[in-house]
């Protein structure tokens, strides 16, 4: 598999305190990589450096054939990234509007993605009229509308109840099977990480190091029954062990 993101000896300090310490790993094209670690270990910082929102204090990274329009980032603060003056339809269409796509193409793409997500929200409503979970789903769909080759997701399911959480996981897998984006997910939930990722990177407390990279070769789509399987529990336990090492380091 061709590598798409290469991170080498990445360093970052905040207020003279070392947060990231020589972080190195590779991500292959089409990977779903989950980043797991204790609070404040710099997971979001890694995504922010890779998306060039902040600069690193050392090391380097490379994203092959990076094009801004082929990239999406779903922020943790989904409420503050939706546009409250636009209705849901306009919000979802916004990335394509920026690319000056025709109305026809926009409508076609929206109905394609809507189908995958089985979206039942009235698209004429405004974000503030939706629940937190619905807003998070909308920001999810908006991020996928431009069919990104690289997708960063920070705490994707924090506002969702368990039922909708499982539903979005299913939709994300369907989307991934169809469009094959490379996905980096930050999550605190070991079950989510084990369910979705084919590679789980576990970080320590700051100064942050990589404790372990655990592969998960289970093929997609992974149905909910996978959550009860022996293979799932084995990987989950391995992640938990590595996580505990990271916390106690």
């Amino acid at each position: 598999m061709k590598s798409i993101i290469t991170i080498k000896n990445l360093k970052k300090n905040f207020n003279q305190k070392e947060v990231l310490q020589d972080i190195s790993f590779k991500i292959n094209e089409g990977d779903i990589v989950a980043l797991i670690g204790p609070n404040g270990c710099g997971k979001t910082t890694i995504l922010n450096i890779l998306s060039k929102l902040i600069e690193s204090d050392g090391g380097e990274f490379k994203i092959n054939d990076f094009k801004q329009h082929d990239f999406s980032y779903i922020f943790q603060s989904y409420r503050d990234s939706l546009l409250p003056w636009k209705n849901i339809h306009e919000n979802i269409a916004f990335p394509l509007k920026l690319q000056k796509k025709s109305n026809e193409e926009i409508e076609r793409t929206i109905s394609e993605i809507k189908q995958i997500f089985n979206l039942k929200i009235d698209l004429k409503r405004y974000p503030y009229e939706l629940s937190g979970g619905q807003q998070q789903t909308v920001s999810f769909i908006r991020a996928l509308i431009n069919k990104p080759k690289i997708l960063f997701i920070d705490e994707p399911f924090s506002a969702l109840d368990y039922e909708n959480n499982l539903l979005i996981r299913k939709c994300l897998q369907e989307y991934h099977l169809r469009y094959k984006p490379t996905v980096l997910i930050i999550t605190h939930n070991i079950e989510e990480a084990t369910h979705l990722a084919n590679k789980i990177v576990i970080f320590s407390r700051p100064p942050t190091k990589i404790i372990k990279i655990i592969p998960n070769k289970e093929p997609y789509p992974r149905p909910n029954s996978f959550l009860k399987s022996e293979g799932f529990n084995k990987i989950k336990d391995e992640v938990l062990d590595a996580f505990q090492i990271g916390v106690n380091l």
Binding site: S51, Q68, H69, F71, Y73, F75, S81, L82, P95, L98
Partner: peptide, 11 residues
């Protein structure tokens, strides 16, 4: 935050 999101969308 919204300006940042738009910037990341390539605006």
């Amino acid at each position: 935050s919204r300006a940042l999101a738009a910037k990341l969308m390539g605006a």
